[in-house]
Amino acid sequence: MLAGDSSLIPIAGATDVLVHWPGNLEAKTRSYLDLSGLGELRSMQWADDTFTIGALTTYWDVICNEQCAQAFPLLINAARQVGSVQIQSRGTWAGNIINASPAADGVPVLMAYDATVVMQSCEGIEEIPLDEFYFGYKQMRRRTDQLVVAIRMPRRAHDVEIFEKVGARRAQAISKIGLAITHSQDGWRIVASAVAPTILRCKAIETLLEEGSPVRSPDDLMAAIAKDVSPIDDIRSSRLYRERVLARILYHDLKGIVPSFV
């Protein structure tokens, strides 16, 4: 159906699609594709070296999964901080990716676990690393005929796993800054949200960590942060606040874990 009508909008949990529904006159003229009949997309599969969640997997599904708590604790951590229980039990990880909000909470932890987005269309299956998926504000490498069917993550041993959500209050808040950090044999992953048009890996910070350059205060991170991110002043916060708080969280959270942070 998606191949036949490029204006069709898939609906999973609808927690993004319907937010502005009552007053949004334009939205009512569009056509929607209800995915709820595709039961097989609500699944979690553990292979030896990968963990795959189907596109209809909700936050709540993951929160309730004990194996996940062991192997991917940040997924649980982030899921618990999404909206409220009502949103957690309807909202899907795939919907979070495709909604492409720079302030999303699901995307940073997925990206920090090197997730890939698995999409299917009449032309076949395509798998794209999440950290290469976005190329601008709400712009992504998905054609309108492609349906996300799954999200896949490699199973690795991590010795550092941190997720921080800075919202304007302790629950039911949209992130002003989000940060997901992992470390494994494959190196550091530092993923930041709400500080650029897309959620992204902070490559300069990652390099700084790999090289072990000394960091003596949050200020020592500002140069790398300036290379990685480009926050804005908006209704929720300011550029300066976002940059400085990102530096402070990185510094305090990694101090004591990373020897070069003194």
Binding site: A168, R169, R170, A171, Q172, A173, I174, I235, R236
Partner: peptide, 23 residues
């Protein structure tokens, strides 16, 4: 209340932040 030209700009409950029970 974020004001712009004498009117509230953040007139949604997502952007005007009242305490939740957790706060």
């Amino acid at each position: 209340c974020v004001q712009e030209r004498g009117a509230m700009k953040n007139c949604q409950l997502t952007n005007y932040i009242i305490p939740t029970s957790d706060d």
